[in-house]
């Protein structure tokens, strides 16, 4: 074998090894959670509240709580994110200020989630007097998701050919008409996909909701956005580290982890399906 062939062989297999290690880790995590959690999944587990000091029963309130808080997050993060993206991509002139704004947004997505959590306590819980509740937690997660929705929406807008804008302007459209009728409709699939991915990430976060509204255990479901709530990631954290009968509740922790992973997976999967359908619709 020539030395160039050997290098080729080694290089390729080194890359394969990297891939295999990553897949192996992923597989181990999934295997562990599914093998230990699947047995716990039942209709009762999904539809009942915890009982007997959270050693029995299900996780229904945590599912409802995570759902509610994610809705608040979406209602806040998607309109503001899309709005910012439209401004940045369509209206803002390319100057050092807009470049600085963009860089700040990129950096925000790297801020640790506990920092958002504490910021949420100061801003929403204390200053704005919302208290610890779904609203505060949802808005905190919304802040955390904003950089994602802005970036995803901006990428979606960038992918729309300039010919659509020019073609529309040349027909006597105002800038806003051109954007609204001939840019936004085609950018929606990309915007939605990016936003859902951001939301899926938010739904799995613990730190931002820890001090802003998630409760250890609640006997009843929240009845308004000003109520505290149980959430899947926080419930998982409690069941695996904070509970007094930690070994006894381990299956519940695994079951919760599995539900959480499934939820995030379905959201991501839903985003892909949605994008596929919207794209297909536009082409027809």
């Amino acid at each position: 074998m020539k030395s160039s062939d050997i290098k080729q062989f080694l290089g390729l297999n080194a890359l394969r090894l990297c891939m295999a290690v990553v897949l192996l880790i992923l597989f181990v995590i999934f295997y562990d959670i599914i093998s230990k959690g699947a047995g716990k999944i039942s209709w009762a587990f999904l539809s009942q509240p915890p009982r007997n000091g959270m050693t029995e029963g299900g996780i229904f309130p945590a599912i409802v709580g995570t759902f509610c808080v994610t809705v608040i997050t979406a209602v806040f993060a998607i309109p503001f994110g899309v709005g910012c993206a439209i401004y940045l991509n369509e209206y803002a002139k390319d100057s050092w200020i807009t470049r600085a704004i963009r860089m700040a947004i990129r950096n925000l997505s790297g801020v640790p989630s506990i920092v958002y959590g504490l910021f949420g306590v100061v801003l929403f819980v204390n200053m704005m007097q919302f208290g610890t509740c779904i609203l505060s937690a949802g808005l905190t997660l919304g802040l955390m998701t904003l950089p994602w929705t802005i970036t995803a929406s901006e990428e979606a807008l960038k992918s729309i050919p300039n010919a659509y804008r020019e073609g529309s302007l040349a027909l006597g459209a105002t800038k806003w008409q051109a954007i609204r009728t001939n840019v936004l409709p085609y950018a929606v699939p990309g915007m939605l996909t990016g936003s859902i991915l951001g939301l899926a990430r938010a739904a799995g976060e613990t730190a931002p909701i820890l001090f802003t509204g998630a409760a250890f255990s609640l006997p009843i479901l929240p009845s308004s956005v000003k109520d505290q709530f149980m959430a899947l990631p926080y419930h998982l954290y409690i069941m695996s580290t904070q509970h007094q009968a930690i070994v006894k509740v381990r299956p519940i922790a695994y079951g919760t982890a599995l539900v959480l992973i499934a939820l995030v997976f379905f959201m991501n999967f839903g985003a892909v399906v949605l994008r596929y359908h919207l794209r297909k619709q536009k082409k027809d």
Binding site: P161, A163, Y164, S168, L169, L171, G172, N182, Y186, K283
Partner: peptide, 29 residues
């Protein structure tokens, strides 16, 4: 721009129906 129309180098029909393409300028006006 309503008075001075333009046709571009590369055909740039919008990804709409034939009818909606021609109606586009009428509708926004």
């Amino acid at each position: 721009r309503k008075k001075v129309g333009m046709v571009f180098q590369k055909p740039n029909p919008f990804p709409k129906s034939i009818f909606d393409n021609v109606a586009y300028g009428l509708r926004i006006n």
